[in-house]
Write a protein that binds this DNA or RNA. Structure first.
Length: 337
RNA sequence: GUGGCCGUAGCUCAGUCUGGUAGAGCACCUGGUUGUGGUCCAGGAUGUCGCGGGUUCAAGUCCCGUCGGUCACC
């Protein structure tokens, strides 16, 4: 899922998203409740109508903002000071449900408490249990039958906590289950172990969504462990910072060596950017801070990630996932990200 | 022509008074960024201190000359 926090995937529009093959986009409850407000979006026909996106939309609850903006957390609610005007903003699990129903998301996430790592086990456990209690409140508050609701597993990198969180979240009967609180500072091995512990307790017939994960290696690690859905700002943010994701490894298009390079970012890429523009031209746009650089690189990076996961999906269907992952890895060499 | 001011990193300049290991910002070169503020962060390279001479243990700094730029006056 490309990330469109404020009902917009930065630098591109709905036509671009269709062109890259996006099937669903993510938007954010916390940001939209502040600007422009969920009442306004509801009045204008809901999020799909508002942003002119016909495909599915998943709204994140604001749980990640509890992590990134560090509000005061009580059993009742998270209390933010607005990033726009500093006003005191209270968000309860019930309000997060209500706002997402107003927005008209196809998939709504429960409000969870994401803990940055490393963290003391006690803190991780406290917030994991709070997330479970909030999950029950969210289920009770949920009323739209045309909207799916996903619970979120927490528990840091503690395998027992992950396992318990996953089992109890699954028992609540959500339409899908997310694994949250990963890619927040922990080593990859610990993340993979935590994911395995969670997945082991999750039903096979419901979507498993790893929140916030999006680097190539991390995606493949998670797919191999049974994850089905992802969102991440990596492809879009890195695009705006001049970094291109490619089959043969990632690189910053700013680098001197691309000054006179007539080849596309990725010779195997189907995207409009690669079919039309050279590395030399894109480097020029980035260096001159031209607005089109953001759009063209975003289109490419989104295409890369979407093709990466659709390739994995096809490999799963043909029973050849391991071979597929080995091939992707060897082609990338040591390419980072 | 006379007088003033200026000449230091690719750019804009500090350092000159009071001599003591040549600096900053920007630009440039790498790397980082995970349920988004387009940022930010961390490293790195960079000098005929206009040129020549003198004084001094030591000169970007003081003295003399010279070249270039600029302004004012004639």
């Amino acid at each position: 899922m490309p990330v469109g926090t404020r009902a917009a995937v930065k630098a591109v529009d709905s036509d671009d998203l269709i062109a890259v093959g996006a099937e669903i986009v993510l938007a954010n409850t916390y940001h939209l409740m502040l600007r422009p407000g969920s009442d306004l979006i509801a009045e204008l026909g809901g999020l799909h109508e508002f942003m002119s996106w016909d495909g599915p939309i998943l709204t994140d609850s604001g749980g990640f903002q509890i992590f990134s903006l560090q509000p005061e957390i009580t059993e009742q609610a998270a209390v933010f000071s607005s990033i726009y005007d500093g006003a005191r903003v209270e968000l309860t699990p019930e309000e997060a449900v209500e706002i997402q129903e107003q927005l008209g998301a196809d998939i709504a996430m429960v409000l969870d408490v994401c803990v940055g790592l490393p963290a003391p086990r006690e803190e991780v456990e406290t917030q994991m249990r709070r997330t479970l209690r909030w999950a029950e409140r969210s289920l009770s508050a949920h009323s739209r039958t045309d909207q799916s609701q996903f619970g979120i597993v927490q528990g840091g990198t503690d395998l027992d906590l992950r396992s318990e969180s996953a089992r109890r979240t699954a028992e609540l009967g959500f339409d899908g289950i997310a694994v949250g609180g990963l890619s927040v500072g922990e080593p990859a091995e610990e993340r993979n172990a935590a994911l395995e512990a969670a997945v082991a307790e999750l039903p096979e017939d419901k979507p498993r969504y790893v929140m916030g994960l999006g680097d190539t290696v991390g995606l493949l690690d998670a797919i191999r462990r049974g994850a089905d859905m992802f969102d991440c700002v990596i492809p879009t943010r890195l695009a705006r910072h001049g970094r291109a994701l490619t089959r043969t490894g990632d690189f910053n298009i700013n680098r001197v060596e691309f000054t006179n390079d007539p080849s596309p970012l990725d010779s195997e890429c189907r995207c409009p950017t690669c079919r039309r523009y050279s590395r030399a031209y894109l480097r020029h746009l980035v260096r001159m801070n031209e607005l089109s650089a953001h759009r063209l690189l975003t289109i490419h990076n989104l295409t890369y990630v979407l093709d990466l996961v659709s390739g994995a999906r096809e490999a799963i269907e043909s029973g050849a996932l391991d071979e597929h992952i080995a091939k992707v890895s060897s082609q990338r060499g040591n390419g980072s990200t």
